[in-house]
Computed example of a mutant assay.
Amino acid sequence: MSEGPLSMVDRVVLILDVFERSGGTLSLGQISARSGIPRSSAHRIVQQLVGARWLQRSGTEYTLGLRMFEIGSLVVRRTRTSDVARPFLQELCATTGHVIHLALLDEQDVVYLEKIGGAYAGTLPSRVGGRLPAHCTGVGKVLLAYSPRAVVDRYLAGGLCARTNASITTAEALEAAMVKIRNCGYATEFGEAAVGTACVAAPILEFDTAVAAVSVCGPWDRLRVDELKYRVMWTAAEVSRRLTATAHSLSA
């Protein structure tokens, strides 16, 4: 059987399914027998999964690794954040008439969890599940501004690509933007991700850590920052308060 990319993925899924059904530790022989994968192939895949922290090895036995827990926790957080934020995003859309985004930071990009809006939404490059370079967006800049220094340093090490002529392309410019954002509590974006578009964004905090951001986006000539910044910050603060409250109730 060929071990091209698809067949390797199939084998990894089979092995992880074995652990899901067992709920405990397994030897290499058990993994091979229960997945139907030859022992030599199973050993090679298992070692790679251990290296990636998907599995953890203890002597001659294996169990699910911390990476599985981390990713599972991230999925739960994303779902909980969207569920808590959605009614506030809908209210913000109704009161402003603009497109509303909910996004989080993932490596060099922002990932959009929600996009709510009318006709103008179709002109924006964002989509639910889609990605854009963080430094080119209002939500991305505000998330970087409220991220630990190590996260910012890793981001800058990846370089700053431009989407438009207005995009930030130097570390110095991004650093200056982040200082301004932290001082005022919100971020703006004017044509940096898409020509003719402007955004105002604010961070959603859980236990003082930025877990997501909310933004109002619209045509450059119709979006009034001075009028919208307080609405966006209030929305982000309310979602932050609800998220923290639900986290306390879940841990109680």
Rank of each mutant, 00 (worst) to 15 (best):
L143V: 03
K229S: 09
R67F: 10
G36M: 11
K115E: 13
S249V: 08
V99F: 04
P219Q: 09
T25F: 10
Q48D: 12
V84L: 11
E91D: 14
Y62L: 09
I71F: 09
V142S: 01
D83M: 11
T25A: 12
S41T: 14
G97E: 12
T95A: 02
R44L: 15
W54M: 12
I168F: 06
L156W: 06
A103R: 03
L66C: 02
Q90R: 14
I100K: 05
G51H: 09
T79W: 02
L49A: 12
S147E: 04
V214D: 09
A237N: 13
V18C: 10
A187N: 05
Q90T: 11
C217Y: 02
C161A: 11
R242I: 04
M233C: 14
R241S: 15
T25P: 03
F69I: 12
A202K: 05
F19P: 10
P87V: 02
D109I: 00
Q56N: 09
E107A: 10
Q90F: 00
Q56I: 08
V142G: 01
P219I: 00
G185K: 03
G24T: 11
I204C: 14
D208K: 08
T164E: 04
K141L: 06
S215F: 03
N183C: 10
V152I: 13
R182V: 15
V239H: 08
G97P: 05
G138W: 01
L113E: 12
E20H: 11
A201G: 08
L28Y: 02
Y62A: 08
V142N: 01
G65N: 08
T137C: 03
T81H: 02
F207M: 07
R21C: 05
H98K: 12
A173P: 00
L28A: 09
R80G: 01
R163C: 11
T246P: 03
Q48M: 13
E20F: 12
E20A: 15
G122F: 12
P5Y: 01
L156H: 02
V99I: 11
V12A: 13
A236S: 13
F190P: 00
E227W: 05
R67N: 08
S251A: 14
A177D: 15
V99K: 01
Q90W: 01
S22V: 13
L55E: 10
E61T: 15
